[in-house]
Design a protein around this nucleic acid. Structure first.
Lengths: 152, 152
DNA sequence: CTTATTCTTGACTAAAATAGTCGGGAATAA
DNA sequence: TTATTCCCGACTATTTTAGTCAAGAATAAG
């Protein structure tokens, strides 16, 4: 799991789509204007989002993109995965041929953490973000665990 | 909050330090050998980690680095913050001068999400990772919320 | 039917970040 | 005294990110 500016752009654009996408599709030109992301760059991102079936497209005048599902059913992790292909983090590529020393251990630990971040982002949908369910915990509870819990 | 390979290197190196750092400090040459990260690159990372007081250093033969606190008291978010200075994600830089349209809204939503990821990583310590507390939830519970909860 | 709009695709380029190199130093334990 | 290790700054190569450009296909609207 990576978390780069590209992933941010993709999530931002998808949020824009969730907010502004009613009956009519939303053109990339609109998103480009609102979010100040270059049109051609958006085209690249949406090509990937479409391949992963997170959005559907309609050509011609009045065309554009729609969410393929409702915002409540599209999760942040999916969006990031779609545009940011993940990388191998281990030197042994999971072949287990580096079982001498601590190398594998730390890599394994990082993989675990990475998996946790992924799980975490798999629980937050565009709908959650729009409904402001994000920050609820921080005003209600100071306890760390409950703060995390109250996310959804 | 960003999550790049640099942050991964830093967390990996700190994990190595937590694992291999007993009474004697650990030299960067050792970490470099085990984790296959170039020595000079590690030097750059540890300069930042030291500035943020996450590690202490000792020069001379037998010298190296130690964790400044116990692994249970050093959290992943701190490590990443130390080496990956965060960037502005809003176009209005929080000055509120973009209150026309949806621009600010999506940026605000992204900031929220970013904050949540940060909070999440602020709850995971090096000690947690080493004790394998990371994956415990995934074998115990299939429920998403409890899986997140059982992290700590 | 024609046209403007919009997606679609691929190749290319500029800019920025990342990762690594190099060389010289200062501290210090052995 | 010397080898080891941290410390620091400047430099460079590589990769990634972000953006540009051009040509083309689909299609709604006039």
């Amino acid at each position: 799991m990576k978390l780069t500016t590209r992933g941010r752009y993709a999530v931002t654009a998808m949020l824009d789509l969730a907010i502004n996408g009613g009956k009519r599709p939303v053109s990339l030109a609109d998103i480009s204007g609102r979010q100040e992301i270059s049109l051609s760059y958006l085209e690249q991102l949406f090509a990937k989002l479409r391949r992963e079936e997170l959005v559907t497209s309609a050509r011609g005048p009045g065309g554009g993109y729609r969410l393929a599902r409702s915002g409540a059913e599209i999760f942040v992790a999916e969006i990031i995965d779609a545009v940011d292909e993940s990388v191998d983090v281990t030197n042994c590529q999971g072949k287990g041929n580096c079982h001498h020393g601590e190398t594998c251990l730390t890599h394994h630990l990082w993989e675990d953490l990475s998996g946790q971040i992924h799980d975490f982002l798999s629980q937050i949908s565009l709908g959650d973000l729009m409904e402001g369910r994000g920050r609820r915990g921080s005003t209600q509870q100071s306890d760390g665990v409950l703060q995390t819990l109250s996310l959804r």
